[in-house]
Design a protein around this nucleic acid. Structure first.
Lengths: 143, 143
DNA sequence: TTATGTGCAAAATATTTGCTTTCCG
DNA sequence: CGGAAAGCAAATATTTTGCACATAA
């Protein structure tokens, strides 16, 4: 049995009756190659390097599709625009208030925040979002 | 010594060379009277009840000013628009994924998340944002 | 071949800004 | 009175959508 390259992506799309296209490959690669958490404009810029005729509308639609099938994850930090990251295990984010750098933080070791919040609220909570704000090491040493 | 009603607001504004105006009173009251976390449109709607000629632009500028002087706080949840709340001690939020209800959650009892994140990242973190998502009690009993 | 996807442009949504007039202190 | 603020409309910024044409399977 031969494992197909990119098989996972095809499978996720097919499961929902969606097709794999050049644009979808290119957008997914753009997010992979961007360091971290690109917004739609950066994905668009990167995608055009490989698919010059791709439109911004397609980038938005494609990012939405890739989130729907579970390959990407949309994130809204304290900004006007959404950012996108590869879907993976739960983690938190530290965001530099000077330069905007976003660093992933392992969720391990923070205890069961969800369980505590469930007790405190009566909500059937299934997901959490944790962000920390402050200056990154580089900006700290800059002055 | 007589304590002036609304003195605190005047003081905060004056400290930055800003004036108190009818519109600023009305916008602040609108946030106070809204249950919880109104967005600019809801503030606008409420403010017009007391100041019919107020414009949406003024609402936005005023919300910004009131945040600057520390009376309000801008919040972005997983939505396109910002929401606003009265500035107060740190707390978290539980958000209903069905009806959108936003409930405040006391931050006490969650341990020193910031300290842990500082160690993990090397960032000089000074602020945290914690949100929980799931169904509120009422939506749970609805079906 | 045919359902699905893309490009393009216009629309929708949220927020900001320039400028003239009005108002607070 | 003089600087700060409001109203209004136009400008921005981000994201969504309608539709004719193109493409994957």
């Amino acid at each position: 049995v031969k494992e197909e390259v990119g098989g996972e992506e095809y499978r996720r799309l097919k499961r929902k009756g969606l097709q794999m296209t050049h644009q979808r490959k290119v957008v997914l690669d753009a997010v992979r190659e961007a360091s971290g958490h690109p917004d739609a404009q950066e994905v668009y810029r990167r995608a055009r390097a490989k698919a010059p005729s791709i439109s911004l509308g397609t980038v938005y639609r494609t990012l939405g599709v890739l989130c729907d099938v579970g390959l990407l994850r949309e994130r809204r930090f304290e900004e006007a625009q959404s950012r996108y990251e590869l879907e993976r295990e739960e983690h938190f984010h530290a965001i530099c208030t000077d330069c905007g750098l976003i660093r992933d933080v392992a969720a391990l070791g923070f205890g069961d925040l969800l369980a505590q919040a469930r007790v405190g609220t009566g909500f059937d909570l299934v997901e959490q979002k944790v962000e920390f704000y402050g200056r990154c090491p580089e900006c700290q040493s800059r002055n």
